[in-house]
Simulated scan of single mutants.
Amino acid sequence: MITTSVAEAAACLQNGQVLAYPTEAVWGLGCDPFNEQAFYDILRLKQRPIEKGVILLAASISQVEHLLQTLPDTMRQQVISSWTNRTPTERATTWLLPAGEHIPSWIKGDHSKVAVRVTTHPLCVALCNAFNGFIVSTSANPAGLEPARSLQEAAAYFHADLNYLNGDLGLSREPSKIVDAESGEVIRA
């Protein structure tokens, strides 16, 4: 299915299906992070090992507030500021945060932390809000290939194996950088 309806796309996620959608810089694959079968469908499509973990994408700070609670105030403010004060052309930042007990083990892979990004991309914000929470966000490409940058490229990779929310990419030229919120180490520059 190809749709421009955010409500239809959110329903796909709620029904345990995988969805391809445009993000800030590349197309992503998403699912309900608490639906283990949907998550394994993404790994199968991408031919990605579970050990790597995936990013969770949220529409607002309130959707990830519980993951920020153990951070020192200055770091918490830095994380929030990177999400809320980003210009549309600026590269987004994904933060590795303490996962706590609420994040399924399959999301984290072999890691004790979870990768989280609060987006300002209007379509992603609408999708997370319609879904009523954060969603999985991993690049739309089989392992080792370039991430899709259009509906046509995503469909060429995955054909009818999933659903597509058609829309525009954001204005960022690169996928998000990834930073460990506790150590400050840049994981993906």
Rank of each mutant, 00 (worst) to 15 (best):
I55K: 07
S62C: 12
D73V: 13
L97D: 15
T94I: 06
P72E: 09
V125F: 07
Q78R: 11
A20R: 04
D180Y: 03
V26G: 07
N129W: 00
V114D: 06
D73T: 11
A130F: 05
I61K: 04
M75I: 15
E90F: 09
T94Y: 05
G144Y: 02
P147R: 14
E24A: 06
N85F: 05
W106Q: 10
A189Q: 12
E24Q: 08
V118K: 01
P175S: 15
V118R: 03
V54A: 02
I103W: 00
R188A: 05
D110C: 14
P104V: 12
L13M: 06
Q17D: 07
T74I: 13
W106T: 08
V54Q: 00
E90I: 00
A155R: 11
L96E: 11
E36F: 01
L151G: 01
W106F: 15
P104Y: 08
F34M: 15
E8N: 07
P88F: 01
N129A: 10
W95H: 06
K52D: 01
I80P: 09
L97W: 06
V26A: 11
A115Y: 04
S139Y: 03
I55L: 11
G30I: 10
E182D: 12
G16T: 10
L71P: 14
A11K: 14
N132L: 06
T3Y: 13
A155S: 10
R91I: 03
T4V: 12
L13E: 08
Q17L: 15
F158E: 08
G109F: 00
D32T: 13
L171F: 07
Y40W: 14
P72W: 02
S81F: 08
M1S: 14
R149H: 05
C128M: 03
A155G: 02
I55T: 08
A155H: 14
R48V: 03
T89F: 11
S5Y: 06
R173S: 15
R48T: 04
P22K: 08
E153A: 12
Q47M: 07
I178V: 15
S137D: 02
R86V: 15
